[in-house]
Design a protein around this nucleic acid. Structure first.
Lengths: 148, 148
DNA sequence: ACTACTTACATTGATATCAATATAAATTGA
DNA sequence: TCAATTTATATTGATATCAATGTAAGTAGT
């Protein structure tokens, strides 16, 4: 009797070509590298840029909603804040009303870094939107939104 | 004179809502969690599944092309292989013709894990395709391909 | 053969990611 | 009030990710 437990190569090709998870992870890595390269002169990664931009609000938000906005685990957010706190770009303070909550805010230095990063984001983002096949970034955003 | 260096909140909202990098990272995290959860019973993460599936070929590939296929850094691939080697699911051997090259292959145990994972991938993937707004996964794949 | 260059991969260090778990503060129900 | 539950966040351990760098093997030009 044969015990050959194996997936045919044709199935491998099918999974490779159709898996949306793989396609998204690939695009995520490529875009991360692109933005990391572009933002390096101001000392930010793409994730740090997105995080700090999401903290640029009239009222400092607590951690939970920020983690939800970025679709990341709360423990990931805790870790991601550390290098930004160390550089003095983000402040983490306690909410007096509810001592469990942490309030996240940008320091003046953090805001200045964000100002320096914004034109880099604008030009980089424009170039990738231009690279889309049918020139319909809004459609792509809708699709991605449905997955997150 | 004022030294206020600050980005208006409206700009923050614009970046948040339009940044394709952020949208892709968010979707990548959400899909990774979804597939990681689904594949946990067979002991694989989404990335390990994609990697092992890409090794299911007639001829063992070297590392470079596999890293390119997955759009990941070569050093990331080196690291990603380690837990799979340790579990005895992937073999890394030297190419006799060119001793710089490593040949990556699945062990029989690795193939068996992949066989167990395939139906999980199929059902999970079908459910996310069904969640797409206009039911056009091919269009989304084209867009993502253009970014990677 | 020898040097310069290139290619393929590994190592190190920093950050990112999440599961499992822990802790502390707030809330709820009796 | 007080015990049980829930909520918000932190810690630990494993893996993922990449830049900077190192090393070994192959290649090309002389």
């Amino acid at each position: 009797m044969s015990n050959a437990v194996e997936i045919p190569f044709s199935t491998t090709l099918l999974v490779r070509d159709t898996c949306l998870c793989l396609h998204v992870q690939r695009a995520a890595r490529a875009l991360a590298r692109l933005f990391d390269d572009a933002l390096r002169p101001v000392g930010l990664t793409n994730g740090q840029f997105s995080l700090m931009m999401s903290l640029n609000r009239p009222e400092p938000p607590p951690m939970g909603p920020v983690a939800t906005l970025l679709a990341m685990d709360q423990t990931t957010l805790t870790a991601a804040l550390k290098p930004l706190q160390r550089r003095g770009w983000v402040n983490v303070t306690q909410n007096a009303k509810d001592k469990r909550r942490r309030l996240l805010s940008l320091t003046p230095e953090g805001k200045a870094v964000l100002v320096a990063a914004l034109p880099i984001w604008e030009s980089t983002h424009a170039s990738i939107e231009a690279a889309l096949p049918d020139g319909d970034p809004e459609r792509l955003r809708r699709d991605l939104q449905a997955l997150a």
